[in-house]
Design a protein around this nucleic acid. Sequence first.
DNA 1: TAGATTGTTAATCGATTAACAATC
DNA 2: TAGATTGTTAATCGATTAACAATC
Lengths: 207, 207
Amino acid sequence: MNKLPEKTIGRLSEYRRTLLICLAKGKTHIYSHELANLHNYTAVQVRRDIMLIGYSTTLKKGYDVKALIDVIANIIDTEEGLNAAIIGVGNLGKAITTYLNGKRTKLRIIAAFDTDPEKTNRVIAGIKCYPMSEINKIIKEQDIRIGIITVPPEDAPSVSEILVSSGIKGVLNYTSTPINVPKNIYLEEYDMITSIEKVAYFVKQKK
Amino acid sequence: MNKLPEKTIGRLSEYRRTLLICLAKGKTHIYSHELANLHNYTAVQVRRDIMLIGYSTTLKKGYDVKALIDVIANIIDTEEGLNAAIIGVGNLGKAITTYLNGKRTKLRIIAAFDTDPEKTNRVIAGIKCYPMSEINKIIKEQDIRIGIITVPPEDAPSVSEILVSSGIKGVLNYTSTPINVPKNIYLEEYDMITSIEKVAYFVKQKK
DNA sequence: TAGATTGTTAATCGATTAACAATC
DNA sequence: TAGATTGTTAATCGATTAACAATC
């Protein structure tokens, strides 16, 4: 499966979550238009995404929910799972950890880091919190591939550097400071202020 | 200023934050390529965005930081500011409230809602937390235009319905359940699981 | 069969980038 | 002036959608 568009990957992840819920409800098959409606996408969009991953159904009774889940899992997940660490144990760090580790996914947050001595060397939100100085060591020892940055904005660049030099492969930056990473490292940035300001702009337009 | 692309609005919001930091550092002018580098965009992208908002500089010494901030503010902000409410006072709800109200923006989260009687009728993260049953009343009384949903995923659809019927104009959905709103209401959805799974996919590809 | 559905190509739409004239 | 920078159009790239043949 070579080079699926980033947008498609995002939607596949969303489809899977919906499909798992359908499965839990005992639904065995789902039409492209059903899946589309659940996500406010079009049926064509859904069919095209599914085409791209090489799955198809012989029946005209929709896609096999279980089979589709498996195909998506094959694309997104690795068999052994993937370890992640969270850097910055504030409200957001705790929210993400609790949320992600609550789901049964192939992704696990297995370590947290913070500078605050009140927080380090304790178990918070179910995972061990280490002092910042140990990032490099722990990442290597515990084979952590993904780093999630939830520190105050001014610390983002330095944290990002440490992560990169520790050999991390993917970075999720939740601070408002944009960061730079080498091309071979995958970076995703998200800032809430931007989202909220976008909403504000469109609300303003509508008046 | 009619109908700027959504992507441009997002970037303008990001530029502004960077520009404010530049201003605080005493920087009065900034080149398109400087602003671009700070965000991993291209200089053309920056110039084009700025062109679209109708700002231009006579100098060849870069954009006037202060002037550009004002132009962006004119586009995104409303003079009186905009009130928002957060629905669901868990870790994520608290994180967003603290983060947003910490910044000096024209957006204020002025009310929180939760079903948990332990939380209601108290002040949490600096704002009053009301029981869910009062959403309609408070939204109208306090002229709240934006609703931010951070409840458990299964409650998202019902919360969204209440918000819509209370006359909200913009919704930010941070749960993993996609929701539907009428066309005249602006909706932005963000789910962390999807982001992290995207990172996971690309990390996997790179192996 | 008629109607509904899928899979896929081609057309369209939107966003980014290349190219370049104008200007300091 | 030469070099750097901006503003803007045109070209390109990528993503979505329209159209439709095939099939149950």
